[in-house]
């Protein structure tokens, strides 16, 4: 079999997925985006409305802040966890991986309802905060509750890319650093941390982008007064039938996502020469 022919077969293998993506993703996104530029009159009217509408801007900013917060908290929780996973033996690693993947076994809805129970004023989270002297913190229907729940839901998306990168870091590099007189802290800061940056970037981008589009959790745990962009789009599409308006917000989110991806990709390459964002493994 020659290579040209085998490539032809490979394209054939891609075809089903390609069709699904084109019909159910690319076309709707394109159509919605097109409508945002064409209706009610061709031009940037929808975008002018969007930036001049205070509520929309507030919601967008709030969404970005929540997404950033969730990203930072998941990173802080996931980094040591993934580090431990990359260090421990195969048995312990499987167990830790199992713990991370456990949430995927239940539906997002079920988990969100579970959080409603947990976050109730008389629930365990409030009780724990009470022990720390933080009485009367409003969890349900607040930004705090939404952030806590989203952090839990999105944690695996941070742990897995981090673990992937960290397991590819050669531990002998740390031994080498120690042998040259570097303290544990210096070896971590100058060798391990920079080499784990691709994983940090991959996980952060993933969590941040997923946070931007989160709808179920803020809808059920948050309050309508503090809605996020997902809820805004849902309201525009479901209640106001304002498809062009919803399209404009979607395009803004898309642009933010793409810009972020490019910026982070470029940043990682500048910071870690020769780094690959897939985890930095090098078998060469």
């Amino acid at each position: 079999m020659n290579s040209a022919r085998s490539r032809g077969w490979a394209v054939l293998l891609l075809l089903p997925a390609l069709v699904v993506v084109l019909v159910f993703f690319v076309y709707p996104v394109f159509a919605l985006s097109a409508r945002s530029f064409l209706e009610p009159t061709p031009g940037f009217g929808q975008y002018v409305d969007l930036v001049t509408n205070e509520t929309t801007v507030t919601i967008l900013v709030r969404t970005l802040v929540v997404a950033l917060l969730v990203t930072v908290v998941t990173l802080a929780l996931a980094y040591p966890y993934a580090y431990l996973m990359s260090l421990c033996g195969p048995g312990m690693r499987t167990f830790l991986l199992f713990l991370v993947l456990l949430p995927f076994w239940s539906s997002l809805m079920a988990r969100t309802f579970a959080w409603i129970v947990l976050l109730q004023p008389s629930g365990p989270v409030a009780g724990f905060l009470g022990l720390l002297g933080l009485d009367g913190v409003k969890l349900l229907g607040s930004q705090l509750g939404v952030t806590i729940a989203m952090t839990q839901v999105l944690l695996p998306f941070m742990v897995l890319p981090l673990f992937n990168t960290m397991s590819g870091i050669d531990r002998r590099l740390l031994s080498a650093a120690h042998s040259m007189g570097a303290s544990r802290f210096r070896a971590f800061r100058t060798v391990y941390l920079p080499l784990s940056v691709p994983g940090v970037a991959a996980g952060s981008v993933l969590v941040f982008i997923l946070s931007l589009g989160f709808w179920v959790t803020p809808r059920l745990i948050g309050s309508p007064q503090q809605s996020l962009v997902g809820q805004l789009i849902e309201t525009k599409v479901g209640k106001l039938l304002d498809f062009p308006g919803a399209g404009a917000i979607s395009v803004v989110l898309l642009v933010i996502t793409v810009v972020l991806l490019l910026a982070v990709g470029g940043g990682v390459r500048a910071l870690v020469p020769g780094a690959k964002t897939d985890g930095g493994r090098d078998d060469g």
Binding site: D170, R172, L173, S175, A176, A177, H178, S179, M180, G181, A182, S183, R184, V191, P194, L195, L271, V272, P273, G274, A275, D282
Partner: peptide, 20 residues
């Protein structure tokens, strides 16, 4: 003493050069 305090030079099997 830990390795960092022994003041030795070490050449590793696969060199362990810092790739970054």
């Amino acid at each position: 003493l830990p390795p960092s305090k022994r003041n030795l030079g070490v050449v590793f099997q696969n060199y362990a050069l810092f790739p970054h």
